[in-house]
Nucleic acid binder design. Sequence first.
DNA 1: TTGTCTATTGACAAATAGTCTATAGTGCGT
DNA 2: ACGCACTATAGACTATTTGTCAATAGACAA
Lengths: 131, 131
Amino acid sequence: MPGGGGGRGRGGGGGRHRGRGRQRRRVRGFLKPCLLVILSQEEGHGYSLLDQLGKFGFDSERSDPSLVYRALRDMEDAGWIESHWDDDSQGPKRRVYQILPEGKAHLTEWVGDLRNVRDEISSLLETYEEV
Amino acid sequence: MPGGGGGRGRGGGGGRHRGRGRQRRRVRGFLKPCLLVILSQEEGHGYSLLDQLGKFGFDSERSDPSLVYRALRDMEDAGWIESHWDDDSQGPKRRVYQILPEGKAHLTEWVGDLRNVRDEISSLLETYEEV
DNA sequence: TTGTCTATTGACAAATAGTCTATAGTGCGT
DNA sequence: ACGCACTATAGACTATTTGTCAATAGACAA
């Protein structure tokens, strides 16, 4: 039984277990734009992207890799990004993703939306503080 | 129609096709905290809350009332808010909601999360602008 | 060759959100 | 009284998104 249930313990050091009782983010829909931003800086594969998500507040201990992989596949199906296999790297082959013009366009739109969302959150916080 | 003015024009004319092609918000999970903030200022019923959501970026033309009602019922089931019927008002009876201490507690937590989300959005936007 | 680490994928369940329709009281015009 | 428009709430059903768990597989070290 390869892999097995418990924890696959990724990352250096001794087996880290992805926590039980993982908590849902309270605001969602943030994963894809984060991936697109990272990819707009440099290409990357699933695991490396997973680790970089920490910069945007994703607790990488608690993020399941399959969420990232699924988001990547979805975006590839949509034609926003494309991938090729990298066989030169250590260990198993990696599927390396690159952003496409369509992806950049979507990211641009998304950035506009996120600016609005940020403003809306701010106005909610202000209202909250008045009380 | 009291206060009406801008009107919600819901159901316009005879049929009540609410706007076709309504678009999804790209970041979700924002409805309940908004309702809680509004309720923490003053009690309100479904329709009045729907109209006030505009302040937080909800396009009230495109928000289906049933979403608001459902969120209110869920939060009442969870013990965050409570309601009573108001029969004195014009027109049909209104179910008027008030926030409870539990709801305030949840709102406080939520506000903390939203501050984080705002910061994360900001850091994503900064990263985006670097490119 | 066995076990461990990196890497990717798939199946399935749970939670959330979105659409459409039904019900009902009120007040107005005729 | 009757029908209509408007306000208000509720329910059923669908779609989409997230979250969990488990399977697969190559590389490498002991």
